[in-house]
């Protein structure tokens, strides 16, 4: 039995399968494990940050600060590793605390001052970007043997594809995200908030701690994405990852989550990421197309998914079940 709430997820999956089939039909080599491995590696940081964004959007909010937080994390790590003798693991822990606290602070402002998340996280976006500039305006290379060690962690397939550590981090993040969203009380509260914050309050949902928790998760995952990005590029640059928050939002929506909150799945976001990565890979394979075609196709997909959501909302209100479930009072 297919539930109407599952339909966007199914559509996302079908889109991915169809898109991959089309790509493979034109370029059979795209079926190789090497392409799959690169898909995971190249989109690792985006995927991680999109998990946090899924929670935020499910609750009916938005987080525009994550792109800047990733850049800040990269610059912070690069500067700390250049100027101090702190071990990278300590630096990782430190930056995760900072970014989570930053998210929690934004969540508190959103809740206690009753401000729209758009404006609060927009301010957060400028703040984090500004803080990155203050640390360094140049691209700072990261050279540390621990980084080299981490970058050498991979599982090589027979065909020469490399499943790297950061791809694995993304997959683990998704798995944990799925469990938290669908199997814990916190996750239920996130969905409840997305269904209506006034009603949630009446039903006894701890709105304050849930809101703060959601933005802390988003901030923390942006920090983790920053760590992964610094492993991916071996540098920290304050101008990096501009607009990544919008890519993450796009992935969430293509993944079938309703922008108004309350409906959607973390797993959908995973396929949203893969679809976006696939488009990019296709353009690389083609070689003649401008990379801007990525944006155009993603734009078209977004429109299609927004229309689909509208249609589903309309359809689900149109065919409401009548009170047939009643049994006669005995």
């Amino acid at each position: 039995m297919i539930r109407s709430t599952h339909l966007p997820l199914i559509v996302t999956l079908a889109t991915f399968v169809l898109a991959y089939a089309l790509c493979a039909w034109q370029y059979p080599s795209m079926l190789s494990l090497r392409v799959v491995a690169n898909l995971l590696t190249d989109n690792a940081f985006l995927g991680i940050v999109a998990v946090g964004m899924t929670f935020v959007i499910l609750s009916g909010g938005i987080d525009l600060s994550v792109g800047s937080v990733i850049a800040f994390t990269g610059v912070f790590l690069a500067v700390v590793l250049r100027d101090t003798t702190l071990h990278p693991l300590m630096a990782f822990a430190l930056v995760l605390v900072i970014t989570s606290a930053f998210g929690a602070a934004m969540g508190s402002i959103i809740h206690y001052l009753e401000m729209p998340p758009f404006i609060v996280t927009l301010a957060g976006m400028f703040l984090a970007r500004g803080a990155a500039y203050v640390l360094s305006t140049d691209s700072v290379p990261i050279t540390h043997e621990f980084y080299d060690a981490l970058q050498q962690v991979y599982w090589k397939t027979a065909s020469g594809g490399r499943f790297r550590l950061i791809g694995g981090v993304m997959i683990v993040t998704f798995l944990v995200g799925i469990m938290v969203a669908h199997r814990t009380r916190f996750g239920q509260n996130v969905y409840a908030l997305g269904g209506g914050s006034a009603t949630s309050r009446l039903m006894g949902v701890p709105v304050a701690s849930t809101t703060i928790g959601i933005y802390a998760i988003s901030g923390g995952l942006a920090g983790l994405a920053g760590i992964v990005f610094s492993l991916y590029t071996s540098a920290g640059y304050s101008l990096a990852t501009v607009g990544v928050e919008l890519d993450a939002i796009a992935a969430v929506v293509i993944g079938g989550t309703l922008l108004t909150g309350g409906f959607g799945f973390v797993a959908g976001t995973f396929f949203g990421i893969l679809i976006m990565g696939l488009i990019q890979t296709y353009i690389v394979f083609d070689g003649t197309l401008s990379s801007w075609w990525t944006k155009i196709v993603i734009g078209g997909l977004l429109f299609a998914f927004i229309l689909l959501q509208k249609g589903l909302t309309w359809a689900s209100t149109a065919r409401r079940k009548v009170a047939t479930g009643f049994v006669t009072p005995s």
Partner: peptide, 24 residues
């Protein structure tokens, strides 16, 4: 005053779900 996006059971038990370990 219930949440239309949650299931009937989720609405009935929101905040007091039966748990198994950390999971609902």
């Amino acid at each position: 005053n219930l949440l239309p996006n949650l299931t009937v059971a989720e609405n009935l038990y929101l905040g007091r779900q039966p748990m198994r370990g950390p999971f609902v």
